[in-house]
Design a binder for these strands. Structure first.
Lengths: 215, 215, 215, 215
DNA sequence: TATGAATGAGCTTTCATTCAT
DNA sequence: AATGAATGAAAGCTCATTCAT
């Protein structure tokens, strides 16, 4: 719950501790998010990043040891901020199914407001090559675990019948991933968030959770 | 046995009509599938492809105007052969839901037997740059449409209650995609196909199709 | 005795076998000798070499895997051609002391005619950094051994009194090296070869070989 | 023991006159000797030097206008201190030949105790580019002159027969240079000083100085 | 058809030097 | 005096593409 900002804001800025320190580093990360998510890892050159961050090639290398390290730092930062948002939303939810629901809703919410973030995490990380696959897998598994834990808890609580929660969590994640990815890659993307109620119904039903009335 | 399994045969060879013509072109495509799916688009050089296809750089350029065009041709070929398999399976299915089920099962079946194909279509296409995203999206949408049509037909036939079939189809595809992608990226992949029954249950339930008994 | 050419010619051209094959490779080596010996290893860029050889950066890299490998190839080539000349001269000499004398004279002779070669072997190889020191040491030790063997033979034959032939050979080499190096580095170098008679006297006397009459 | 040997002390510290002034400058020079002689001119970066001298990039640039100037200052300092040692030893020697002998012995002595100094003056100076070749040549010529003057004096005094003292001095220097350089570049260097008696004999004999009895 | 030598734009990375603080 | 963030020229190397043979 590091970030208490309740708005959709998903700023890349560092902790409030020192206002201008790291400002260049932060500017680079912000620019990198923009550029990497627009052009992808390979098409983005260091010169490109430097221009976008209004600095120089050397400036980039002063703050990050390599292009790969910069991309990874960006990934970690993005992931940890998304994670914080999701965890905050889950804390506020009353029961396991509501927590899982909150997690999904929050991800959709954040991605809807930050298409570049969605593109970075869902598309470019897969596209950036071998080195990043492991990291992606790790982040993904983390999220899938989060969901799975809630499903397990729901089973334990008797809210839903026993089922393969590992697979169900993966299915949920895949569904969300696909919906967001299609939106990210669309030429003229519509509104992402308005699909949520329907998506929610489908997913809850998939685990035998939704009654006719709840629809 | 994966590669020699006759029942899942998914050879890249052209139609039997002209036995030797295009054999070089075909050899190049086959080698390219192997190499691109192993190393990705950017790490694969024309020299690399030429060596794998036992030809020369010039040989590649005689058959394909550019690296990009070769990759695209490979993509189209892979997609159309996958499509043919899926359509054949759908024809044999008795009703809409069975057809949709057959489509998913076939995709899983083919990918299970051809991990390189899965990797090419689901992973490497994202690393190859913007132009390929479009194509990937198009293939995906095509498949989603295929599913959607069956769901619509099922609704029309009264087999399932009305629902947002576009989204449901996308969710189905996303779930499948996620399960396959995780398997493709895993260090030590397990057996892909054995998850199908459970996956099927989840997806069918998501559209309100599966009763307790059917499980 | 690979080269039978008795002139001072010290061409870089390959064996007479295939007249134009390897012509580009040879041209690169010739240009590299010129440029490296003029500017030194570090100040010489690949672009510089490419321009001097009238080819392109890629052209260089087609024939040599790296700058270091090119420099090493140049070194080996130069050394082996110098070695051939020296060996040929030694074969023609009647006795050990005459052979040693011939070796020194030939080196001076060749270097006098090819200042760039002298500079490459004596100056730039030391200046090019760690990686090349070992190779330099090896080439040098080879030459020192050559001299030493003759001194040992002279001792065995009773031509000279026993002495530390290893050190004497090294001293001879050092003396030669210094004389050539001073000439190589001089702004306005004089004639190198005319010092030989005097140098010869000094060195022969150092091993107790020269009588008053021989002076 | 090499570094702490009081009898061969060759500290880089400034004159005892001003105890703390220039201490930073001196510290930089001392660190630079260590680092340059270990890694060579090109592989040594300003950052590297700053770290070794426990200061910062800016600190280096406050005391020296450029990397080249720092290297040159180091060279001059090293040379002048070596020169002082040599001159002191020569003053103490009774006659010209003994003076020349003392010069050589002292150089060997100092280098034996300060391998880094030997490496700097004899090896790394060649890797640092054209400007340094000149300086090296100059230092060398200075030393050769020193020897030559003694040889001329010895000829004038009738101690030795007339000879080309310029060449003889160069030969002496070359012999010394070679012995030291081989030792500097050796992987497992032996004891440098123990070769001196034999080297001395060879050199003295080369100018017709040493009788059988003196050996 | 096929080959492979050649091209050159473009890449990531390094590092001497500057300068606001 | 000293610091270290920032600059940008230049380096070594890669590789898609071309073309004479």
């Amino acid at each position: 719950m590091r970030k208490t900002d309740r708005s959709v804001g998903f700023e890349m800025s560092e902790s409030m501790a020192d206002p201008r320190a790291d400002s260049r580093r932060t500017a680079i990360l912000e620019a990198a998010l923009r550029v990497f998510s627009r052009f992808g890892y390979h098409l983005t050159s260091i010169d490109h990043l430097a221009a976008a961050a209004q600095t120089s090639k050397g400036g980039i290398y002063f703050h990050f040891p390599s292009k790969q390290a910069l991309f990874l730092a960006l990934l970690d930062r993005a992931a940890s901020q998304l994670r914080a948002r999701v965890e905050a939303a889950m804390v506020a939810a009353p029961d396991p199914v509501a927590k899982a629901d909150a997690a999904l809703r929050t991800v959709l919410h954040v991605f809807a407001a930050h298409r570049d973030l969605a593109r970075l995490l869902l598309v470019e990380t897969l596209g950036a090559g071998r080195e990043f696959h492991q990291r992606r897998l790790q982040l993904q598994d983390e999220f899938v675990s989060l969901i799975r834990q809630q499903l397990d808890a729901a089973v334990a609580a008797g809210s839903i019948s026993p089922l393969d929660t590992a697979l169900a969590a993966r299915v949920w994640f895949g569904a969300l991933n696909e919906v967001v990815t299609a939106w990210v890659l669309a030429e003229r993307p519509g509104t992402l968030e308005e699909v949520y109620p329907t998506l929610r119904s489908l997913l809850l039903r998939s685990i035998g959770m939704l009654t006719e009335a709840q629809l």
